[in-house]
Amino acid sequence: MDASNYLYISALLFTIGAVGVVVRRNAIVVFMCIELMLNAANLSFVTFSRINGNLDGQVMAFFTMVVAACEVVVGLAIIVAIYRSRRSASVDDASLLKR
């Protein structure tokens, strides 16, 4: 079995996450899908790290995790703020930018 199998699964997970962002309306699920995409990228980093034989990829994955954490914190705060004013967590309801 080849290490690039991990890359294939990473691509699949990433694609699934992307579809989820588009098709799901619940803001929290959308966020989870984004997390899924980030994790898929992380898996690629780790695999590349293994293929290249150094730890740079793992450090990158570490950074990605921190950024993801930041993003989740801020994003969820935004969701809470929106929910408080609109009583809805659907991203379709927050479509006021059109006008």
Partner: peptide, 25 residues
């Protein structure tokens, strides 16, 4: 894949902290 540290951090940070945050919200 020999990324022991990341594996542990993944469990702690994601399944621990981030998922808890999701569930809390």
């Amino acid at each position: 894949q020999d990324a022991v540290f990341l594996g542990i951090v993944q469990v702690v940070v994601y399944t621990g902290a981030v998922m808890m945050l999701f569930l809390f919200i």
